[in-house]
Design a binder for these strands. Structure first.
Lengths: 211, 211
DNA sequence: ATGATTGGATAGTGCCACTCTCCGAACGGG
DNA sequence: CCCGTTCGGAGAGTGGCACTATCCAATCAT
């Protein structure tokens, strides 16, 4: 198909697709002549995934390029590709450094992981994200001790189990990786909005009966 | 205290504090002379909360102003203030409109809430956020039927129950509202990073034994 | 008295996701 | 074969946003 059709079927404007091509989010189409290129269903899927990452997942364009590159890199094994792709996703700023709050947060984070029976993964950026968020809570004076966090951890474990099982159902390796990335990013707003809805439900149940 | 001390104790640069004052994130200090103003501990708390919302919660400055204004608006009752504050938080784009995916997403969202026993809250922006995210998943061809979503909903309910109970422990109404906003926003990265850590744990457990 | 500091206002910076505009080559109906 | 249309590509420009650099006059400390 041509650029115009790709644009129509994906709902992404032609100029934006050109921009994505320039930024490497999308591989170039198969050149059929000096000024014409042909795109296939694979391009359409990639474009939709890229669009979802950028718009829904708020992943910066440069980051999305790395993620998609890792998904397609067939030179390494599945688990490494998955790790590379997920590590490239945004994680917020790393903890500032020498700070009492950061030290306390780091200790809490490690204790939580130990209590949940998770093996520590030193290089995981999600760990830095957790420490940074906990340090902020501590600085604001809000409680975030281990007992507070365990319910979150158990909820996360339940969800993750579900997700990994779901991903296993996708056959081809690249399809699995695409699914892993898509589900990791796109279920974030689902989880957060369900949490807010649950909060609203619980708040009205406790604080008031009307409206 | 003076601006300089407020800056030092909060870790926010003087120019940024001035910017926040201009944007209404922080009430002006008490004018002690034509060119001097005095700030108190309340300003420090507000500043730290605003900073956390903007930096960690990625809340736009204009949005943070509305949220903080709702928290301090003592002219209405607690639950309304809470609703206003949380509604002002960012929710991503609303669903596009006339689209088969959006319709299916809306039906799924309502069914999930029904199955979880949550009363439908029509005006809640979190609902739009959920529908929008589900529509994106549907467009990408990933499963997000009711059975997939129920574990997320149950996890969200468990977490929300914990949080509302925690908020009730804060005495003063304004303090409670501040806590509600802070916990809603600042626990988001905590929850998401725990989910990613849980995914990593589960993935290594199933897909490989080393690294 | 006087140099430093303070609070306030205005304009500018840097980043980022697009988007506008132009170009020359190719397609295709007549 | 002709010519208006469409195509892909490339560089510069736009708008939004979170700051930030600079300046100014009043005031404080010595």
């Amino acid at each position: 198909m041509r650029l115009a059709e790709l644009s129509e079927r994906s709902g992404v404007s032609i100029t934006t697709i050109k921009y994505y091509l320039r930024e490497g989010l999308l591989p170039p189409g198969e050149r059929v002549s000096a000024t014409q290129a042909e795109y296939d269903e694979e391009h359409l899927r990639r474009l939709r995934l890229a669009r979802a990452l950028v718009q829904v997942g708020r992943v910066p364009v440069a980051t999305a390029r790395k993620v998609l590159a890792a998904v397609e890199d067939e030179s390494v094994d599945q688990l490494t590709r998955l790790g590379t792709a997920v590590s490239a996703l945004p994680h917020g700023p790393a903890p500032s450094g020498a700070d009492g709050a950061v030290d306390a947060a780091r200790r809490t984070a490690e204790e939580v992981q130990r209590r949940l029976g998770w093996r520590p993964v030193p290089g995981n950026p999600a760990h830095g994200m957790l420490v940074s968020a906990l340090a902020t809570l501590i600085r604001l004076g809000y409680p975030c001790d281990v007992d507070q966090l365990l319910p979150y951890g158990r909820a996360a474990a339940a969800i993750a189990g579900h997700e990994i099982a779901l991903i296993e159902e996708f056959g081809a390796p690249t399809t699995q990786l695409e699914a892993a990335v898509a589900l990791t990013v796109l279920y974030e707003p689902v989880l957060l909005s369900l949490r807010r809805l649950a909060q609203a439900e619980e708040a009205t149940r406790r604080f008031g009966t009307q409206t």
